[in-house]
């Protein structure tokens, strides 16, 4: 029985930033990341009929995006694309134990874990943003993530500075609550 439904019209508002963040940490280029997100939506449209509703729309889109990212690495034929796990240590007794040395953790490469943690944190923040009312989320993102001027946002939405700060206050309170529940 399908429990989740699909609504392509809401994809950009709901998921584009989430997918974008997922992509940007993997391709490290804003334009390419945007293209991959757009391609994911197109591919989603094409395979809509295959959506069984077992997963959430977002999970389903992420699974498409993952393929797109892998395809991208294959296409540019990067080292990452060619990377495969190849282990061929000989059983020669002379070299026995060499692998141990190679596998000792590199003390200077201690960032991987914190990078993963930061990525997860980014996705947790996006999940919380999804729960905000749309206007609040858009304004909060513009102000906090994209660093727009108060004046620019006020002009864009035709609101006063006081209105803006009230919206920001509500958004920040909701975000802090949500992250407290889901993160720390």
């Amino acid at each position: 029985m399908s429990t989740n439904t699909i609504d392509p019209n809401s994809w950009i508002d709901k998921y584009s930033d989430y997918l974008f963040n997922y992509t940007i940490v993997r391709v490290d280029d804003r334009e390419i990341a945007q293209d991959l997100v757009q391609e994911t939506f197109f591919a989603g449209l094409k395979s809509m009929k295959n959506f069984k509703g077992e997963a959430s729309e977002r999970t389903w889109l992420i699974s498409i995006l993952k393929r797109k990212i892998i395809d991208y690495y294959r296409k540019i034929n990067s080292n990452k694309g060619k990377a495969e796990v190849r282990i061929n240590y000989s059983t020669d007794s002379e070299t026995e134990g060499d692998w141990l040395e190679e596998r000792v953790a590199d003390p200077f490469d201690g960032n991987a874990e914190s990078e993963i943690e930061n990525e997860e944190l980014g996705l947790a923040i996006h999940s919380c943003l999804d729960k905000l009312p749309e206007k609040q989320a858009v304004i909060f993102k513009m102000k906090t993530i994209q660093g727009f001027d108060t004046e620019a946002i006020c002009n864009e939405f035709d609101i006063t500075a006081s209105n803006l700060w009230v919206i920001i206050h509500r958004a920040r309170t909701a975000m802090a609550e949500c992250l407290e529940k889901n993160w720390y």
């Binding site: 930033d17 963040n21 923040i125 996006h126 993102k141 906090t144 993530i145 864009e156």
Partner: peptide, 17 residues
């Protein structure tokens, strides 16, 4: 938010998308 280095697509870009 700073630590997560979170990013968003520009509003104008979203309109194009």
């Amino acid at each position: 938010i700073e630590k997560s280095n979170i990013q968003a697509i520009d509003v104008s870009q979203k309109k194009v998308m």
